[in-house]
């Protein structure tokens, strides 16, 4: 009896010690994240930052760590930072921007034990014999299409303005989808597209929005962090806005109808699982409406919810002429 109890106690102690030992020896998964703007840009960089926060919440802070570098718009600076992070032993280095591809293909072969990821792109450089680069690509045209259908239903003038950064990648795909969505509802729609040549020129984005509204547009949309300037104009002049990257309704609750929210975690989670199993790269992760990588966030709380609340509370009185 005594012997049995001893065995039980010893077993318990050994389990405790072993689990403690394992717990301590299990290294957290470490990620480094570089972005061209800032974590609070209300667009591109913020959406990735939010994905990393989500994953950290799910895995626990002790199992998932991440560091980041903001404002890496100069590719040469970014390349230096990528190299630094790789040599510091991060399991995954995310270079969040299609401008970083050439640097990655240059650096990745020097760090075979590190995984790298970049986007939006479908290029993982396997043709160069590189095996440790992942790519991610949202099918932005799907989100653009949904926004376009909604926009067409809401526009009175049937004139639409798109304020895009540079005619390439994500922005181009989103714009094509937006146009197709509108045309599916109103084939005679007039859709004016401006490319302002910059991801960050808020002043030019704002002026483009002014010009669109002067040209008769009552619904605007656009991508990248410079669009906050255009949202400001939409708010001031009473135009509707359709967002991209993150839910942008907080910027202008009365004007932002819906936003395409890019859920990068849908790409990152399977990527992390692959790395844990020892696969370092070579896979392209696509984000779309089917796999939950793209979500349409309709601003029903501000637009519909506030109206209902107003009527319920009596702040809004709906009169009927007798």
């Amino acid at each position: 009896m005594k012997m049995k109890r001893m065995i039980v106690i010893l077993t318990l102690i050994s389990i405790f010690v072993l689990s403690f030992g394992f717990g301590a020896s299990a290294e957290p998964f470490r990620v480094a994240f570089l972005m061209p703007s800032a974590i609070n840009d209300f667009a591109w960089s913020q959406s990735m930052y939010e994905a990393l926060l989500t994953i950290q919440k799910e895995m626990g802070k002790e199992n998932f760590e991440f560091v980041y570098s903001e404002n890496m718009f100069v590719v040469a600076d970014a390349a230096a930072a990528i190299r630094d992070y790789a040599s510091e032993g991060y399991a995954l280095v995310i270079a969040h921007g299609s401008q970083y591809g050439a640097s990655l293909s240059d650096i990745a072969p020097d760090f075979p034990d590190t995984s790298f990821a970049w986007g939006s792109t479908a290029n993982v450089f396997t043709d160069l014999g590189i095996t440790n680069i992942f790519a991610y690509e949202p099918l932005s045209e799907q989100g653009g299409y949904v926004n376009g259908v909604l926009a067409a239903k809401l526009s009175k003038n049937n004139i639409y303005g798109v304020i895009g950064p540079i005619e390439t990648g994500d922005a181009k795909r989103y714009t094509e989808g937006f146009k197709a969505g509108i045309k599916s509802v109103k084939p005679d729609a007039k859709i004016n597209v401006t490319w302002i040549g910059s991801y960050s020129d808020v002043a030019l984005a704002s002026e483009a929005a002014q010009t669109h509204i002067d040209a008769g547009a009552d619904v605007l949309t656009g991508t990248s962090q410079m669009t906050v300037g255009a949202i400001g104009v939409a708010k001031q002049r009473g135009a509707l806005w359709f967002g991209y990257d993150v839910d942008q309704s907080a910027l202008a609750p009365q004007n932002v109808v819906a936003s395409v929210d890019v859920i990068w975690a849908i790409a990152l989670k399977p990527m992390i699982e692959m790395i844990k199993k020892g696969e370092r790269g070579g896979k392209i992760f696509t984000l779309n409406l089917a796999n939950g990588g793209l979500k349409i966030v309709v601003n029903d709380e501000a637009l519909v919810g506030k109206t209902i609340e107003g009527i319920v509370k009596g702040n809004i009185e709906v009169k009927v002429e007798k």
């Binding site: 609070n40 808020v202 704002s206 300037g229 400001g232």
Partner: peptide
Amino acid sequence: LLNVFQQNL
């Protein structure tokens, strides 16, 4: 003119 602030506005 813009009525917003962003880093490197």
